[in-house]
Each structure stands twice: as C-alpha cells, then as structure tokens.
C-alpha cells in the first residue's frame, strides 16, 4: 500500500521529465520538468503518513524502481515489517510474511484506495509520459508560496489517460511541479497534490516530499517523503522477481 505511494511518486515524477533549456514554450517547460525527475532507476527510503479525520498512521519503506514499469518495495515500519510489493508493468503482487502468502492485485481491487487512502493501486500503474496522453497549454503565471510558477494545463488526448484534465503549477526557476490538480471527465476535482520539499540531487531539482489530498473525501491527506534518494543507480533485474518477493 505505502509502497504504491512510492510507485505513484515515481510515476508522477517520471511524467514530469523536462530539459534545462530556458525556452518558455509549454513543451519546453514540460521537458525541463522531465529532465529533473526522470530517471532510469531510483533507490530510496520512503515514509508515508496517512491522515484521516485528524488521526495519522505512518508507514516506512525501502524502495527500488526501474523506469515506471518495475518497482519493489519492502516495508520497514513495525506493523508491516517484511510486507513486500512487486510491480511489473500492469501487475502488482503483495507478499505477507506472517502468512507467507502472495496476493495478486487486479480487477476492481486495483481501483480501490490503498490503506484507507485515496490513491489506488491503478494510480501506481499509470504511464509516466504525460506528453503521450495529454496535450499541454500554458495558461498563466502564478505563485505557490513565494515561488513564481507557470500554470500548465494538461488535457487528455486519449480516453485511457488517468485523469481528463490536470493543472500543474511548475516552479519557474527549478522546473519542478509544486502543485497539481487532477480532474475527472465530469469536471470534478478528484485529487490535489502539493510539493512540500524540493532537494538538490546532483545537478537536478527533485521533489522529495509531496502531500496528496483527496477531493472526494473530507479530512484526508497523505504525505509521501523520500530520503536517501539515489538516481540512475545500477539495479539487478532479479530484484523484480517473484523469488525476491517471497524470499
């Protein structure tokens, strides 16, 4: 569950890849975002805080991912220690050490919120490349906190896009998304995310803590924070095997 948040994070970040060029066309802006957050592989320790009606639960994990199609997460918080998630393409398996049992998540379960949150398993399987599924338009400039931002609106070009419309507030200097709103086909706002922390990793800016708020449930939010982030590190493909999941 929490791992799926990690995967969501990876997917979101991967979708925002950009180049560092100074041009201000919307395509260039998205390219620069991509350049900041795209990676061939990532390794990190994560912490997910789910708050529902003022009560918070914490999940911690170690995660490794390759692109947006492969991810492996092992939970380290006491309640879930040893629970592992393996994501390969559109499939997700969960291993429960106490039962020594593996469950494959598919069908309607993939649409359910994870761990009482409003992030579904399917969110975790979303394609990372926004520019394939969305057409982008630069709407205006705005500020988030004291940061100047470009407001970019993404409209679904294909029926299979996870959201019909997304609005991104992209930091005009660091080219990371500081805020995002995700809308349904009906026009209803489904979710919003806010970047809480942006870190310098090598030569790129990287959003390391993001708060997700469901707009379909009152008084809920999830904060996902990554630490010890290592990008583009070599990862053994065996990491994403069923044998590793159940070892």
């Amino acid at each position: 569950m929490r791992l799926s948040y990690a995967v969501v994070m990876a997917v979101l970040l991967a979708g925002l890849a950009a180049s560092a060029a100074p041009a201000q066309s919307v395509d260039d802006i998205l390219s620069m975002v991509d350049a900041n957050v795209s990676y061939t592989s990532i390794r990190y320790s994560g912490r997910m805080e789910i708050t529902i009606a003022g009560e918070s639960r914490y999940k911690t994990m170690d995660a490794v991912a390759q692109g947006s199609s492969k991810a492996f997460v092992e939970f380290t918080n006491p309640e879930d220690r040893g629970v592992r998630y393996l994501k390969r393409d559109k499939n997700l398996w969960i291993y429960f050490p106490s039962e020594q049992d593996t469950v494959k998540i598919s069908g309607h379960l993939l649409k359910e919120g994870m761990m009482g949150s409003d992030v579904s398993y399917e969110d975790a399987l979303e394609s990372s490349d926004y520019r394939v599924k969305y057409s982008a338009a630069l709407k205006q400039e705005d500020t988030v906190g004291d940061r100047r931002c470009f407001v970019v609106e993404l409209s679904a070009k294909v029926d299979t896009a996870a959201y019909d419309r997304r609005v991104l507030w992209i930091d005009a200097e660091r080219y990371v998304s500081l805020k995002q709103e995700m809308y349904a086909k009906s026009g209803k706002l489904l979710k919003a995310s806010t970047t809480l922390m942006v870190e310098r990793i090598g030569d790129r800016w990287f959003p390391s803590s993001v708060e997700f708020v469901s707009k379909l449930r009152n008084n809920t939010k999830t904060v996902f924070t990554m630490s010890k982030v290592a990008l583009d590190v070599p990862v053994d493909d065996r990491q994403f095997s069923m044998a590793t999941l159940t070892k």
Binding site: K111, S120, E122, D159, A162, A184, K185, S186, L190, L216
Partner: peptide, 16 residues
C-alpha cells in the same frame, strides 16, 4: 451523493 466509478476506458470518473 458522490458517485465514483471506472469508465469504459478504465479511468476514474466521479460526479454528484
């Protein structure tokens, strides 16, 4: 009442 469902394209939609 808020109703959420997956569309025929397997995408989340919601409406009141």
């Amino acid at each position: 009442v808020l109703v959420t469902a997956q569309t025929v394209h397997d995408v989340t939609n919601a409406d009141e």
